[in-house]
Design a protein around this nucleic acid. Structure first.
Lengths: 347, 347
DNA sequence: GTGAAAGCGCTAACAG
DNA sequence: CTGTTAGCGCTTTCAC
């Protein structure tokens, strides 16, 4: 077992070498599993290393090798469950590759984000993962020359920067189609008026599904929403005051769906008997909602994994098979939707 | 604006110095805002730095200064909302101090955790934050000589290692007391049989409150539970089959409370009219539960902030005012509890 | 198989 | 005020 040492007494390779009676390069070779070390020598060195609990200074290594073994991940915020699996996925892949993850939270401020990018560009890391980057941030990144991968990149249609996104359009389409297949014709959507690319795609998918089914697209049924619980709540209240309210609500995301539930509960409208509700994202709490929410699963773990994998390739100078990856969503059927025929209020 | 450069062409201070027609130390001084640089010189250097978009290599600096400006945070897992605010709090404080946060997830494996600690001990970071460390991990940490702070340390009563915890006992006591004050006498607790220190304290607080009110402590009302939704569900089912079921359930944590709700809903027992329920942690979804859950708020953000603040002091060689900090909890009253008098089933 | 020498990019000490 | 000198801890030739 390693001996105990004083707090600030950190051994260097030179000291290990001296104790083991060898030279510094030999210790280095042992540490890096080079083959050109005689077994007895290796043994002796290893023993000293273990005995003294030596761990090599990463800074020296980084300086020498020009790589830090660190990757930066810039997130808009940490207190949102949404980002967790992305982080987890990235961490998994990076961990397997022996790369460590440096976390930067920008608290939704572009300025902070750019500062983050600049801080990162000091080569304290070998590459960068950015979730929901602003347009400006992307420019900074491209200028930096560091490898990077964008997650949920907003805009940047022109840019050829490597990115991973979710097929929001498809998700919106599938959710709506699912409702249509169950006989719903008046389907509301909450979450209009956001600039985020994902949101725009989502509502486009909704409209396309209606259109494909030859259903009218009623502007009254498209509610504003910034993807918060409150927005879902308000929109639902408004929706139910319509002369001809919807029979189903596509909530845009799960948080809004929670608001929809709350409004519906207050109004005494029963889900799914009197109103079908479908969410988007598949956040963890949707399972324990009452009734459990049918929703579109956004593969966030894979988002993180894929982005990290791409970044690793970039860092190692390998080419990317695809620069702009789009990950598919799928519907998770639970108990918040019901065929229209059975709806109490309808017809 | 910075000119564009080839991807792998990173300027060094030497190059900047040459371009600006000064020596390397001068550039260093400018970068570090030293006062002993003539204004014109400074101006010229700064201009070159901006023009070429130079950012200094952190590894060189780290090597020279013996500090990396990085702090490691080891978490049992990333896919649990519980840990988010802790991380966020730590990130906030660290960010303010210009220190960056390196994330390590151990996936609940002690082995991984120790490996994590060892990896970290390579001085790639200046200090370590460990959430829910195993006993063994603490030993490794103490041996490493690196500054560290424990968050939610399990066990380690003997250890004097710096740590931050939540007053679980107090929380358990307050929750139970709250129920007692509302006339409840048969109060169940879910979450027995865990080794985690926090859990042991929590149930002790529960028992103490009962005891203080001269209420009997019925073993039947103390259910096993590992703090998952499923455990809350099962325990509740069992509880309601008792000849004399409880009138209130202290769910141990919010996740179990969610299970309690589910079981109760299945059985047609209405919260809070027929059963009062109280949680612990104050996770974000408790607000949108139906009815919103009354729970004990565990100050997780402050947990992270406090731990990070302590670690920073340690890193800078300053003494800690307190080595073992305990953060207070408080009750968040919502709508899942009701005075016993009004209970339909009771008496 | 081993070690001496060189140098990664940076900052601190000091001489001028 | 400025530049010279030295060296952080490590890895990489390249002699021996």
């Amino acid at each position: 077992m390693a001996k105990r040492h004083k707090a600030d007494e950190r051994l260097t390779m030179a000291q290990i070498a001296q104790i083991a009676g060898v030279s510094v390069p030999t210790v280095s070779k042992v540490l890096n599993s080079h083959t050109d070390v005689a077994p007895p020598t290796r043994k002796r060195v290893e023993q000293v290393i273990v005995e003294y609990g030596f761990v090599r200074n990463r800074a020296g290594r980084a300086l020498r090798k020009g790589k830090t073994g660190l990757v930066d991940c810039i997130l808009p915020r940490l207190d949102d469950e949404y980002f967790l699996p992305i982080l987890e996925g990235a961490a998994q892949v990076l961990h397997e590759a022996g790369v460590r993850l440096v976390l930067t939270s920008t608290h939704h401020q572009t300025e902070e984000e750019i500062r983050g990018v600049d801080t990162v560009t000091d080569h304290s890391t070998d590459g960068i993962l950015v979730v929901l980057p602003a347009e400006e941030t992307i420019e900074h990144l491209e200028r930096s020359g560091l490898p990077f991968v964008l997650i949920h990149s907003q805009g940047g249609l022109l840019s050829t920067a490597p990115s991973v996104r979710i097929a929001s359009w498809e998700g919106g389409f599938v959710a709506t189609q699912y409702l249509i297949a169950r006989g719903h014709q008046r389907i509301a959507y909450i979450g209009k008026a956001t600039v985020a690319r994902e949101a725009i795609e989502r509502i486009a998918g909704y409209r396309a599904a209606l259109d494909a089914a030859d259903l009218p697209i009623d502007p009254q049924l498209q509610c504003k929403g910034d993807f918060t619980e409150e927005d879902g709540y308000k929109a639902t209240k408004a929706l139910l005051e319509l002369s001809e309210p919807p029979t189903a609500i596509f909530a845009g995301n799960d948080r809004q769906a929670a608001g929809v539930y709350r409004a519906l509960h207050e109004l005494g409208t029963i889900v799914p008997d009197e109103m079908s509700v479908i969410g988007f994202d598949n956040l963890s709490f949707t399972e324990i909602m009452n009734p459990p929410l049918t929703t579109i699963h956004a593969p966030r773990l894979e988002l993180g994994r894929t982005a990290a994998t791409m970044l690793l390739r970039l860092i190692n100078g390998k080419p990317l098979e695809m620069a702009r990856v789009v990950l598919s969503t799928h519907l998770v059927e639970r108990q918040s939707c019901r065929p229209l025929a059975r709806l109490a209020k309808s017809q």
